[in-house]
Design a protein around this nucleic acid. Sequence first.
DNA 1: TTGTGTTTTACGACCTCC
DNA 2: GGAGGTCGTAAAACACAA
Length: 544
Amino acid sequence: MNNNNNINYSSLISNDHETGSSGEPLRIFDASYNNYSIHPNSYSDYTPIPSKIEAFDYNYWPATNTHNILANQTIVAIDQAQTQQSLNPTLETLVPIPSVQLSQLNASATISATHHHHHIHQHLYPPTPSTPPPTCNDSSTWLGSGNYQALHPTPTPNPSTYRHYSNPCSFYPTNNFYDPSQPQWTSQPTIPIKFESSYSPPLYFETGNHCQEQTSKDELSNSPQQSNWLKHESSHPNSVPPKNLLNGNQLTFKRKTRTRDKYRIVYTDQQRYELENEFNLSKYISIPRKSALSLTLSLSERQIKIWFQNRRAKERKLNKKRHDVTSSRQLNNSNDVDSPSDGGVESPNYYQNYTSHDYLQQQQQQQQQQLKSATAEMDLSVLWCLGPDFDKQTVSSLLNDSYCVESGLTQSITSNWWMSSPSKWNNSLMHESDVYTPRSVMNELEPQSPTSASIKRPLSDASNRTISSRSLTNSKPPPPPPPKLEFLTPVRSHTPDIYNRVSSSVKRTRAAPTLAPSSTFETPPAQAIPSASSAIDSAEQVIF
DNA sequence: TTGTGTTTTACGACCTCC
DNA sequence: GGAGGTCGTAAAACACAA
């Protein structure tokens, strides 16, 4: 399979290569990031969260306002100096740090290793942290006084002993570094590094044991022997690997298995939140966006890609579940229309009949029950901003954080805080060329019509590639969007239903490939973006 | 505290497209 | 052949009832 891949491990680390190759400079967080509060989609169903799996369903994740909260310029202002001081000069040169530079950049050694087979192309766990792991008391981490993780109740295990790889503190890079206690924590240069050689030109490579824990099978399969063993090992977990896999040389091969305790990490709420935001805006991440998110969240691009894959799978699962429930309901509908036979899953009709008033009421009840605290008078829109997947303590902590409330939360619900129209944006704050911008903002800036998008985002953007290429062979119009459901949110979205960029109805199915490949392959960017883009265009015409 | 079910990361196999 | 897609699944992390 990939036996002939003689990986030059000395050339695996580079700075963000994709950015350079794509021609689209990285956009680091921008102050205007905070300004976007348009709920990214008008897919406004509401689910009373009967189960956790429904939490993100129908995309009522409050992309905008949560951004407002968590990336609030005021909140992170304190961090600016520290962050920029600690940033390495290279990064500063490449990406002028905006005021809302996410401060994890100073340790954003998002490093992924080479892979040479399919999507095994990126290490998930970079081997070389650039700085010692920050402590949870590190004031230079997220959100300054609104320190995110300080608000997050995730316990802080002893790094030397913790076995679960929840972030020991707020720093994202800890997600990527399995073992912060390793000596290299203190011995490596402070260089944010990406480690994904599928695109990257070689810069340098740090050999040593730090790669051992994080290297995947395929990535290490640089010899037939190793490959064969790894293949064999997958079915014989207890077999003994060849010696050269254990301690052969500097590249001490040690398989990363799924059976070892170091199996997966848990993303922080902030990371998940950003990913959810991106997902709400587009079910498929483009290469530039992936690169930007990678840098911003200190996750490898592979992690982001896999997260999106898993997220789509979750969406499909939910849709299927919903469809099944709807079908069963229809069967039983003649006898008992109101029978609560959903088991917690709502039909589309349910969503349609579920008004925002109901939502607010239920949200209020839920939160009052959950918090059981002085938050009885909380502004529901604040809670809404936090999204469904923030745990109760996080919500409570944020609500009780006066700094947060004063600087971000309350602002997020005011009508004039968010400048919904791009024309209102301060151009001095928007330098898209060097500033990471949420996709929702990008959408406002760059309506992704098939023409303009493909021009503005050339080759590196897979979405646009598919727009320009696949759409040529796909004469079938995109499927009609599902019925939109009204959901009056505290900040009413202007954005059209980007959800419909991905239509599960055109999903390619392996079991029944009855349609022509060009029309059955799930290529949402190709099939859906044009319609969504035109909708965006028309929506912006309304806005302006 | 423990058992159990669910959700979240991550991977492998296999697919299509370019 | 490489990219990213889905699908199925492993296993950690988590939630919650008993």
